[in-house]
Amino acid sequence: MYAWIWRHLPGNAWVKALTSLVLVLGIVYLLFQYVFPWAEPLLPFNDVTVDNGMAVAR
């Protein structure tokens, strides 16, 4: 998978390394900004109220 991506990136090794870095940072940004906030309420980690999770639905 990663070898395939590396082969298909354009340019020489330095350009490829730079492109990979940008790709990785972009994926981390997407995870932190969109995926994790979406996934968080689905996981039972952080209920703090005594109404038995009713507040979560809002």
Partner: peptide
């Protein structure tokens, strides 16, 4: 006001119970 996660708690604020 409220204890909704998205509206209040997840913003680092303390929620005031409006439910139950």
């Amino acid at each position: 006001e409220g204890t909704g996660k998205h509206q209040v708690l997840d913003k680092g604020m303390v929620g005031h119970y409006s439910r139950p």
